[in-house]
Amino acid sequence: MSNANWPLWEVFIRSKQGLSHKHVGSLRAADAQMAVENARDVYTRRSEGISIWVVQSNDVFASDPSEADSLYEPADSKVYRHPTFYDVPDGISHM
């Protein structure tokens, strides 16, 4: 079995307590444990993280960029979802 058969893993790192895990890159490893160990060596050499998630790249199901218009256009037309849409009379505060 060669390296080619090792699956690709996406690596997510939590940089400190209170923040969410963030995608930092990918690597190849024989299994999840090895992926975490490799991620430790490659992505946290300078104290970049305190927690690591690894997910097999094959298991990530992504939206299709060519469908972006139909997926996200409805949000563009609903400006009333933002507070700046509303008029607040002068003199009103704490709103």
Binding site: M1, W6, M34
Partner: peptide, 16 residues
């Protein structure tokens, strides 16, 4: 390094 990669793959399989 081939044997190391082979061993890692075998170990991963055993663990699974």
């Amino acid at each position: 390094g081939m044997w190391v990669r082979e061993a890692a793959a075998a170990y991963a399989e055993k663990r699974a």
